[in-house]
Design a binder for these strands. Sequence first.
DNA 1: TGTGAGTTGATTTTT
DNA 2: TCAACTCACA
Length: 761
Amino acid sequence: MTAHLWQSLTAAQREAVEHVDGPLLILAGPGSGKTRVVTHRVAYLLRQGIASRNILALTFTNKAADEMRGRLTQLAPGQQLWIGTFHRFCARLLRQYAPYVGLSENFTIYDTSDSERCLKATLAAAERDLSWTTPERLARAISQCKNQLISADDYRPPTGNPLGAILQEVYPAYQRRLLASNAVDFDDLLLHVARLLRTSDELRALLDERFRYILVDEYQDTNLAQYAIVRALSVDHPNLAVTGDPDQSIYGWRGANLSNILEFERDYPDVRVVRLEQNYRSTGHILHVADVLIRHNARRKPKALFTDNPRGAPVRLTAYDTQQREAEGIAAEIAAEVHPGRRRPRDYAVFYRVNALSRSLEHALRDQGLPYQIVNGVEFYQRREIKDVLSYLRLLNNPRDDVALERIINTPPRGIGRTTLLRLRQQAQAQGGSLRDACGTCQAIAGLSRRAAKAVGQFARLIDRLEQLAAQPVREIIQQVLDLSGYRQYLGHSDAAEDVERLANVEELLTAAEEFDRQHPGEGQLEEFLEQASLVNDTDAWEDERDKVTLMTLHAAKGLEFPVVYIIAVEQGLLPHELSRHENDRLEEERRLLFVGITRAQQSLQLSMAQYRDFRGQHNRTVPSEFLLELPPESLHVVNLQPGTAAQRPETFDQDQSDTNRPAPVRPPRGARRGGRAPAGVTTAAHLLADEPDGGSGTPPQAPPPDQFSEGMAVLHPTYGPGKIVALSGDRERRRATVRFANGSGQRTFVLSQSPLRPAR
DNA sequence: TGTGAGTTGATTTTT
DNA sequence: TCAACTCACA
């Protein structure tokens, strides 16, 4: 082996790299060179004479897979081994074994919006009263079931849960519809494979033998289904190496199960554990802030983060007046470094909790003439025109794809309206066939007007004609679709900026198809193209080559690093997010999210908040994030850019609706109270942020907070559930609200200052 | 059947 | 704020 490859590795890294047989757990802190270790280890395995086809590397995102592939081609050129996401891997297996689960190999992969359409169709057919819940909620519930390996037949609702009762009916019906359409949703990819491995030990053993060495990256993000798959493939050959960091688990909401990594040692008692704790990325101050913050989490594996890097500048904690000031301030700082050439735009990243926060930054950066890129804005493959065109392709590939058919049967408009579609659905149901079948027999459908029947007949002929082309190169198929369906004309007939852009997007799709064709010569590649389109997202298109400021969510930031990082809107309700604030597990996940953001920074980091922020079209006073209280003052530099604020700030706490109101005007948020972990001498974010320029001055009596309740407003009560305010009375501390509750609890009156009632939004 | 205005209602993170 | 959906009308 070439000596220089290993020279740069530390003892701990080398230990992981040179581990060959048996289970291995690599606990890798941020910036600890994990990717290097993993790729070196694969190279090492290959050099030990292990055949590349026996190695399987599973990642969570395409981006991670691409990076690993890229590095491996440098370390071990010319080796063919499987590197990819769980979903890609499962899709590929499923194509091979589709009949075992009732699919044919040309099945369609529904993305989230497709499966929601499918679910809506199911609900419409079931005719249940859904006024009290939404299809989205049901979709999420189904997804959660699948993540936990609960199949439609196994599902038993918890007693007294109204959602469960509906689910018991709808989940199997939805699943039947998917199968009838020869389609799977994202979760099915995993679920089908997991069940396949469980039911057929023969197949399981075959694949276990085939994939003798398995590596799983970001193991902390695996859910139960992924866990089951990996375990099933590591019975006879338990050479399972997982890497991860429990502190960077941020996908709990998607079913990721932190226990998978926390209890790995229990699952594999003879596991070798390697800890990579030295950080090569960040300055001492940045790492210290991250470390102190994450120690507030209870569910974790304690670890000591350290670095030999210089301490650097303290982390800045900046309070702005408004979000505009925040954005302008950040943009001006970047411009001041970039324009004289001290730094490049690509050195900078701005992170936020939700996509909606990017707008003011875009403005500010544009005003400064700074180039920027937004990761995960509107995804390319989610755009209407792209989905339209792809739906044609999907229907060609899988005639039973009803969701695709419904999408295009009248796009562009060809005179097939609601009524006609309804008849077609009835016909399909009666025949027990697909909509595509029904279209073919439209002459025989009762109640269909002559005109409608003609339109449907034309549509059926169009599809027939296109189906002849299915073996052509993908670009050619798309061209024909655009021409024969009239879609190109339909988009091109107006000069509206919107239409021009749509046309441009379609052109881009053609380019992508051309590129695909080049890489996939030969016939019948349509299926592979569609699979890529469903399982590849826009993060993958993020170009770190481009010299631009990067704007992205904290989730998207995982795995990346930047010299200078800004994290904006570190405020209650956003970070931690409103929906995660009240459950401890989810609060810890929010803390991890901030931890991930902080540890992306190499040299310089600023956390910021704005006193006022426009959100969802409303102008709101904000409350500093409780996480700010948990940061170590000795590594912080607090900058207060709010004019004359010390006087008003206590009031901000009155708007904190998280727990029971207290009479005291200044109330330490939860973090400070819990176990007295707040840094000595600092009790509240108000103090923390009032350090300068005018901190400590006398506090005049504050104005009463603006009334947040109004008549007719939807509210939520922890005991009585959702309700509506029917009357308000009294003032200030005595202000009372009468609420009518939805679930038969009748009407009740609450003293607002003493009740946990809050707006339901 | 298609279109446009108007309303409503919902808003986290993604394979 | 903004997209999806409804409803009235051509």
